[in-house]
Design a protein around this nucleic acid. Structure first.
Lengths: 353, 353
DNA sequence: TTGTAAGCGTTATCAC
DNA sequence: GTGATAACGCTTACAA
């Protein structure tokens, strides 16, 4: 494998000159540079990543470290996320390292290891929990990071994040349902272990309030874990007196909406916008949302924009370490605080609601 | 950030001793080792990955390098794949680097760069094409790799791969349909740019032959690109004389099966196993397959086993570089050649067929 | 059982 | 414009 020495030798110059020629320094004779570049090509020379990171302080690598393995397995959304992130990294000419840890303890160990071994310049966090202890850990460790998602205390605990405004998305959904004539709107949610679940729920509540509707505890179900529980919840809903049946069910995610979908069909209820049908909505706009029948009305997370923004932020943090971040204006983007960006999701209306 | 020097200093020993103590060498006094380990813990010391790779010849990193960006975006399967691979890497204590390249030319450049910069010990290939030029490139470059999927000439061009037996899966599907009484079985396929598409199709043909059925060119559609094309193809199918209508449609992937699903419903045709309904099958068993209604009968790719096997193979290749691979027997696993493994997929029967 | 020292392939600092 | 040379943090002969 060719090293800088081989190139230097063949070009008849010193390694210093090779390094400078290849790294675009100005104080190199143009002829020399051309020769060096050409020979580097012939020899198939690429600088050793290890030597570079050892010498310089950059690895040009960032880590995507989702919290729990369970998510990577079961939450289809995070698969989408990795794909978009890989693309964004490619654009930024960064390598993407993907790690998984099973338990919170492993996670701590993982982060410490990542920082200690200087394997990466920065970390992208996901699955942020309402009171995520990783934030503090990373701040202690002193490694640049950007989270996808907010803790509940993001106000005091100042740290960089990008989040999609789940509350706004849910409000748009409720407004849409209201316009369609719905007055009894149920809400189904998965576990509240991540904070986006909380935001989405509060968006639903705000949406109701904005239209003068009152939340009915019997129509709100939290912590739904699997399809069986969802089926039971749907059954309870339609065991209510007939005039108290909800006409729409808002699910906290597309995944859950599918379960609702299934449960309704199993219960012999029809899904859609026509009178007599039950409206169903999701959140995320996963690929299958367009494919189920009827097509799922949902809220699209701007995945590419999210990943691009995450990386933009992270790259700045890595470069300037502690300089303030310039807050530029851009449509669909709100600054909640320094380095704290909120993106607006988009309502996607299909036939289910 | 703590280095080996800090640990050595605080422990009152030389850096050699620290290195040996931490790397589990036998010729270190037990007391010394304990002290070193303890101090390393206190100081939060982790060896620098860069220094390690520079000195030793290992990076403990492998790359997942799917061919084309388009796949990462549009082929849901590869998202699943990354998740499973990340987990397998975690188990092997390896870091997983994910890269994407847009064009074949970029891919060449990417691989050369990966090898040249010694960023990783090995590569996992995916999206293998019938006559994939990357195989030869990687062999020239001399970097250990294992492919997920076969070229058509895998017999002569000896290279390591793991593949799921698509032909066997399709045969099982056809056999299942035959048992259900189907005699006119259509086949819909996406582009033949990857070789698994070819294998699946030939499995369909073999399946027909095994049951004395004859392939009807009018019921076989290839190179389906999007939903519109699929809809048109379905329309053509049912524009045939009534007694020549197929009673089942075998799709080459779950993704395509969803399009078929959609097209049939749009055409007012019902999907399922009852008389008068059209049977539909997929391939992959993506998460949504269980969620669509009716549940999609399909073939499950053993994803975890695939990734585990890929890594087992790759790790051996990295370690022994050129030693022969021991071919151990295991259920559901066939050795096609040295370092060439075929895994058997599993029929998953739901309500769509 | 422990320490000394060489070297992995870069880039940055200085001198020429 | 160019070239020695030190340093980055580690592992591994070799010496003690």
């Amino acid at each position: 494998m060719a090293t800088i020495f081989h190139v230097a030798e063949k070009a008849g110059v010193s390694i210093t000159t090779v390094s400078r020629a290849l790294n675009g320094y100005s104080d190199v004779n143009e002829d020399t540079r051309r020769r060096v570049v050409e020979i580097a090509g012939e020899l198939n020379y690429y600088p050793s990543a290890a030597a570079r990171s050892l010498r310089g302080k950059r690895t040009n690598t960032i880590v995507f470290a989702p919290q729990v393995h369970a998510h990577i397995e079961s939450e289809p959304f995070f698969k989408e996320f990795i794909g978009a992130l890989a693309l964004a990294c490619f654009i930024h000419d960064l390598s993407l390292l993907v790690t998984v840890a099973d338990s919170p303890k492993d996670t701590r160990e993982l982060y410490r290891g990542l920082a200690g071994s200087r394997r990466a310049d920065g970390i992208i966090l996901a699955d942020v929990e309402p009171d995520d202890e990783r934030i503090q850990l990373l701040q202690e460790i002193h490694i640049p990071f950007v989270a996808f998602g907010r803790t509940t205390r993001y106000g005091d605990l100042t740290y960089p994040f990008v989040d999609v405004d789940g509350a706004a998305g849910m409000q748009a959904l409720v407004a849409h349902l209201y316009r369609q004539g719905h007055r009894r709107i149920a809400y189904f949610s998965g576990p509240f272990s991540t904070s986006y679940a909380l935001h989405r729920y509060s968006g639903y509540q705000q949406g109701l309030r904005q239209h003068g509707l009152v939340e009915d505890a019997r129509c709100v179900v939290h912590e739904l874990q699997d399809r069986a529980e969802t089926q039971a919840a749907v059954a309870r809903l339609f065991a209510l007196p007939r005039d108290e049946h909800p006409t729409a069910i808002v699910a906290s995610s597309d995944r859950l909406a599918l379960d609702v979908h299934y449960a309704l069909q199993a219960a012999g209820l029809s899904i859609g916008r026509s009178p007599g049908q039950i409206a169903v909505t999701g959140f995320d706009d996963l690929p299958f949302a367009a494919y189920v029948h009827p097509g799922l009305t949902t809220v699209r997370q701007p995945l590419d924009a999210t990943c691009a923004t995450l990386l933009d932020l992270l790259v700045i943090l890595i470069k300037h370490k502690s300089e303030p971040i310039p807050q530029h204006a851009e449509p669909g983007l709100t600054w909640l605080g320094p380095q704290q960006i909120l993106l607006v999701p988009e309502l996607v209306i299909r036939d289910s609601a």
